[in-house]
Amino acid sequence: NEIPEITDRTIEIKALAREAGYRTKIAVSSIDLKVDCVGACVGVRGSRIKNIVDELGGERIDIVRWNDSLQVMIPNALQPAAIEEVFLYPRLGRAIVLVKEDQLSLAIGRRGQNVRLASKLVGWDIEIMTHDELNEGIDKAETWFRQLPNVSEEMVEAFIVDGFLSYDDLTFLEPAQLAEISGVTEEQAQEMITFAEEAAERVEEETRLAREAEAEARAQAEAAGVSEEAKETPSQTAATLFPEEGSVATTESKPTMESLFGPDTPAKEEQPLDAKQVFGEETPAEKT
């Protein structure tokens, strides 16, 4: 056994969620305060957990610390993402977890794997949102719920406080449960549930069509971008490869006499020499 503390039950595995071959999350606790349950499972420099990972063919294993409080346990389960806030809605068994924009993809994980395993680990449905997404969801829910028959503003507020953010959420309730929340009769509650079921199908269809239209528009935009790049004519290609002689600026200049021999300077006028300058003495004529 790679982890003897588990064998002697000093460390207890409280919960486990696994997608075989890909990733596992394990929540552990220790009955001995001196034993760090996570550190003991991981080992020095990851030595213990690495051996187990190798035995499982490289499957990723997350060891998290168990806590009886969901406000603590849910952020632990969603590691390594940093969590801002957790809202719990016991009636729906749902937790809405708020994160910053830069932590959203990390909290959700590749193909939703991180949040899916965390949900299995804690036994609650976990929804990851940013603050803006939650506010937008509340605004939509208020608009939808005001269309319900027999509804009042107080009922709309009560639904949202209990974590109901869509028509679909209301369809999971029995008439007696909805009557208890809203204060209407069971007959009126049944009318509300029937309306919500029909409206949920309509909203789902509208959402599906909107996504398809968005995907089609994106594909058309990408195709248009490719076709624009491909529009270069053969003459344009030739002009790029073989530019005309006059279109290419030349940096070399032809040599000139001045560049070779320097600038011309006017020749100095020669002064005539006299006999004295030539012979260094007076001429016979001068002696007489």
Rank of each mutant, 00 (worst) to 15 (best):
F279Y: 13
S247I: 04
V226P: 00
A230Q: 14
E245S: 13
S119C: 05
A199E: 12
P234G: 11
G137T: 12
D62S: 08
D54M: 05
E153G: 11
E286S: 13
R94Y: 06
A15H: 07
L104W: 01
A107N: 00
K140T: 14
E55N: 08
Y89L: 04
R60S: 08
V248C: 07
R211L: 15
K34F: 08
T251G: 12
L209W: 08
G112H: 03
Q71L: 11
P243H: 01
A95H: 05
E85D: 15
I74D: 09
A223L: 06
T194E: 15
E154A: 15
R18Y: 00
Q190S: 15
F261E: 07
E269P: 09
L106E: 01
E133K: 00
V64E: 02
V161M: 09
V151Y: 03
E12G: 01
Y89M: 09
G183H: 13
K14P: 05
P4L: 10
A179P: 07
E229M: 11
A82G: 09
E245T: 11
M257A: 15
A27V: 11
S166Q: 08
A40F: 02
S166T: 12
Q188P: 12
P255T: 10
G163L: 01
V86C: 06
E245A: 13
L134F: 11
A224I: 03
E191W: 13
A77S: 11
V203D: 03
D168G: 08
G39A: 08
D169T: 10
L16M: 14
S47H: 05
L170S: 02
N150I: 08
L117H: 01
E282P: 11
E212P: 07
L121N: 05
D168Q: 14
V226A: 11
L148A: 04
F87N: 14
R110I: 08
K25T: 06
V278I: 15
E204H: 12
K25P: 01
P80I: 09
F172S: 15
E222R: 12
E127H: 07
L70H: 12
Q113N: 07
S182K: 01
P175Q: 13
A81V: 03
N114D: 03
G123A: 04
P234F: 01
E197L: 11
E142A: 14
E19A: 04
I181P: 00
N67V: 03
A221G: 05
L121R: 09
I31R: 14
K140D: 15
I126G: 01
E281S: 13
T171G: 01
V38A: 01
K276S: 10
E245Y: 15
V184H: 05
I61A: 00
D168L: 13
S235G: 06
K254W: 14
A210P: 05
K100N: 14
E281W: 10
L241C: 07
